[in-house]
């Protein structure tokens, strides 16, 4: 997996669909190009870009809240309308999981997305978020338990 794909997957965790994730990835790389001067140590480039990725995704979520407020149609709705029925069920299951992830507390959500979507190691997550590795493991455990409970609860509904 290239680093570009890693960043794309992390964005996918924060967004509803691949289109938004792709746009967000572009934004991140554009920001990284502009801020290249602020990178002091090339060895820290990975962590540096992951931090830009995380901050950009959080800004995106804030904008999304505003869009929901004004009930604007998102690209997500358009994609569902165009997808054949056979694929809708899996898509809906995936959307349920994503919706549940969005409901997680912020700290658990971002740890889970970095791990499950970005495939980052505990070390990489700890450096990106600026927390200890032990804390990463603890948050991941709690996030997984909470997510399982939420998704299972949704299925029962």
């Amino acid at each position: 997996m290239t680093y570009k794909e890693k960043v794309f997957f992390i964005c996918l965790g924060y967004t509803k669909n691949p289109c938004d994730a792709d746009d967000l990835t572009q934004d991140i790389y554009l920001k990284a190009l502009k801020k290249l001067g602020s990178l002091k140590d090339v060895n820290l480039a990975k962590v540096w870009i992951l931090r830009i990725c995380r901050n950009t995704c959080l800004d995106h979520l804030k904008k999304l809240r505003l869009r929901r407020l004004f009930s604007l149609k998102t690209k997500e709705d358009i994609i569902i309308e165009q997808t054949p029925e056979s694929q809708i069920i899996t898509h809906q299951q995936i959307q349920k999981v994503k919706a549940s992830i969005q409901q997680l507390p912020k700290k658990l959500k971002e740890t889970l997305i970095l791990r499950e979507y970005g495939d980052l190691s505990y070390q990489e997550i700890s450096q990106t978020l600026g927390i200890k590795t032990g804390t990463v493991m603890s948050r991941l455990n709690r996030a997984r338990q909470a997510l399982s409970d939420m998704v299972k609860g949704n299925h029962h509904d």
Binding site: E5, F8, F9, L12, P18, T90, I94, E116
Partner: peptide, 14 residues
């Protein structure tokens, strides 16, 4: 597994 499926589909698009 669901997340994996989502990622595979998204990667094709990307």
């Amino acid at each position: 597994n669901l997340i994996k499926k989502e990622k595979q589909k998204a990667l094709v698009f990307f």
